[in-house]
Nucleic acid binder design. Structure first.
Lengths: 231, 231
DNA sequence: CCAAAAGTGTTGGTTCTACACCCATGC
DNA sequence: GCATGGGTGTAGAACCAACACTTTTGG
């Protein structure tokens, strides 16, 4: 096809944006870049598309290569394509995102690439347009979390109501009345109360809950009304 | 950079998915492909990324070249990247979508490429993965329309309540009680009633409304509860 | 005068926000 | 015994779904 010669053939990158929650704080996983240019600067976990590989597959491979994390379901959130976004060479980047329970994957985390969790409000300068990617990802997270009960992915098997509330407040950059929050959350029929308390946060201790797996008639829309005004 | 040689350098396409509303039906704009392979098959409006062009820019250019439509705000909705999605050559495609008032752009529509509006439920076989793109676009439209008053883009300057309701019902593939729908819609403070009726749909005629531009305290969440169960 | 679509009102139940107090415990 | 964070209850307003009848007018 001769007419395709005027069209560009860029490198295609995937960048992985992984959110986690630890010590009551929303965090993002970043690595120190090993390649030139911008060696030793912080960035998302990125790599290039190979032959016969879809972007979904590339994202999983790249994440594993750079962090050791495996079996994490990521979702495509956006594609960045400004012609000068990578000064070295024309590159477009497809961004993938996921939410994980930090403690669950701690053992898997390979520190060869100096992967570190940063609080979302204390993210260092990032290469290229990666800061914009994080911003787009946070926005996506809000919209998604408003409509679906996905934030539980960030918590462990068991968690307390004050913990979940803190997570919601971090994600929506807002604060909620604890009485209303807890009523709505319990009203969702998503949780099952355990006979065990987390005493790390207070003297009294807060009861643990777990996700109720068999419930199939949950009412998530009650939580939506909380989040709606923050979208 | 020698290590980049193992990475692919595919063509990068943009495909435009344009929704419109006409005769109480949600429609999609398609063209008959002029290029080999799959000449004369129906497809979205697509083209390739050029030098120094971002995907956003390419999408606007391609849409204009193939249909004559200009000044349409499109949003990026997803990127398709399976390695064999285009049998001729490795190509990834970034899909953009928009909602337009068909009658407003009718004059601009250049029929050189045989652009036609198809009802969403009567879309012919499409090339490559374009049918999947339409499906993803419809899903995106639902989510977006549930959270924001965007469907008005599909209607003209003035419209009647039964018209809007029909549009909502098409988009959400559902039906709503007209009394509740109209109460919520008017309660949103988004509309301004005109002293004029549309008599084309009934003997009695339905009053026209227009978008109230100055209102900045609208209550869109009331409409959300209608749509929520369809997401 | 009648068919066909527009328009409107009510009710009982549910959920909303806003708010203040008691509880359990470790120190 | 007190400071700290956990947990709950209430009231009045707003909103919800479900439902049936009247209005207008072209034919």
């Amino acid at each position: 096809m001769s007419q395709t010669s005027k069209y560009i053939r860029p490198l295609v990158a995937v960048d992985c944006l992984i959110f986690g929650f630890e010590n009551q704080t929303l965090k993002v996983l970043l690595i120190k870049r090993k390649l030139q240019p911008y060696q030793n600067e912080w960035s998302l976990m990125g790599g290039f598309l190979k032959d016969k590989e879809s972007a979904d597959e590339a994202a999983s491979r790249v994440l594993k290569e750079l962090t050791g994390l495996e079996g994490i379901f990521m979702e495509q959130i956006a594609t960045f394509s400004k012609f000068d976004r990578d000064p070295a060479e024309r590159t477009i980047s497809i961004v993938y995102s996921s939410l994980i329970d930090i403690s669950k994957f701690e053992a898997q985390l390979n520190h060869a690439y100096e992967a570190h969790w940063f609080k979302v409000d204390e993210i260092p300068a990032l290469i290229f347009d990666h800061e914009e990617m994080v911003a787009v990802g946070r926005d996506y997270l809000k919209k998604k979390a408003a409509l679906q009960p996905i934030l539980f992915e960030l918590l462990g098997e068991k968690f307390t109501i004050p913990q979940i509330q803190q997570l919601y407040e971090e994600v929506f950059e807002s604060s909620f009345d604890k009485r209303n929050f807890s009523r709505k959350l319990l009203g969702s029929k998503l949780l099952h109360k355990l006979n065990e308390k987390d005493k790390s946060g207070s003297k009294k201790g807060a009861f643990y809950y777990e996700l109720d797996k068999q419930t199939n008639h949950y009412n998530f829309n009650t939580l939506l009304t909380l989040a709606y005004s923050q979208l």
